[in-house]
Amino acid sequence: MDDIANKCAGLRLSKREESEVDLTPPMAEMRYVLAGKFCTKRRVSLELMARVLKSVWRTKKNFEVCDMGEKKVLFQFKDEKDLDRVLLLSPWSFNKYLVVLHKLGEGEAVNKLKFCRASFWVQIHGLPTMSQTRGAGLRIGGILGVVEKVDVDEKGFRLGGYFCIRVSMDITQPLCRGRLVHIGRSLLTWVDFKYERLPIFCYWCGKVDHDERDCI
Rank of each mutant, 00 (worst) to 15 (best):
D2K: 15
D3M: 13
A5M: 14
K7Y: 09
C8I: 13
G10L: 14
L11W: 10
R12M: 12
R12F: 05
R12T: 11
S14G: 11
K15R: 14
E17A: 15
E18V: 11
E18D: 12
E20I: 13
P25V: 05
A28N: 11
M30K: 15
V33W: 08
K41R: 13
K41Q: 12
K41P: 00
R42L: 12
R42F: 08
L46G: 04
L46W: 08
E47H: 13
M49N: 04
M49P: 05
R51L: 13
V52D: 08
V52H: 10
W57Y: 09
W57S: 01
W57V: 01
W57L: 05
K61T: 11
F63C: 05
C66P: 06
K71Y: 08
K72T: 12
F75N: 02
F75I: 03
Q76K: 15
F77S: 04
D79Q: 06
K81M: 13
K81C: 09
D82S: 05
L83T: 00
L83A: 03
D84E: 14
D84P: 06
V86F: 04
V86W: 05
L87Q: 03
F94N: 03
F94A: 05
N95V: 04
K96D: 05
Y97K: 04
Y97T: 00
Y97A: 03
Y97I: 01
V99N: 05
V100M: 03
E106N: 12
E108F: 03
E108G: 02
E108Q: 14
A109P: 00
A109F: 15
A109M: 13
V110R: 07
N111G: 10
N111P: 09
K112I: 03
K114C: 09
K114L: 12
C116L: 09
C116D: 15
A118S: 07
F120C: 02
W121G: 01
W121P: 03
V122N: 00
H125Y: 14
G126F: 04
P128F: 06
T129V: 14
M130V: 11
M130G: 11
M130K: 15
Q132D: 08
R134M: 14
A136E: 06
R139W: 07
I140F: 07
G141V: 01
L144W: 01
G145R: 00
G145K: 03
E148G: 02
E148D: 08
D151M: 08
K155R: 14
G156T: 01
F157L: 11
F157C: 08
R158N: 11
L159K: 15
L159M: 14
G160D: 02
G160C: 04
G160W: 03
G161P: 09
R166Y: 03
S168G: 06
D170G: 02
I171P: 00
I171H: 01
T172C: 12
Q173D: 02
Q173I: 02
C176V: 12
C176W: 06
C176H: 10
R177V: 03
R177P: 10
R177F: 05
L180G: 09
L180S: 13
V181S: 08
I183R: 04
I183P: 02
G184N: 01
R185E: 14
L187M: 10
L188Y: 08
T189S: 11
D192L: 13
F193T: 00
K194E: 03
R197L: 04
R197N: 08
P199Y: 00
I200N: 10
C202P: 01
Y203W: 10
W204E: 08
G206E: 00
D209A: 01
D211C: 07
E212V: 00
R213W: 06
R213D: 04
D214W: 06
D214C: 04
I216W: 12
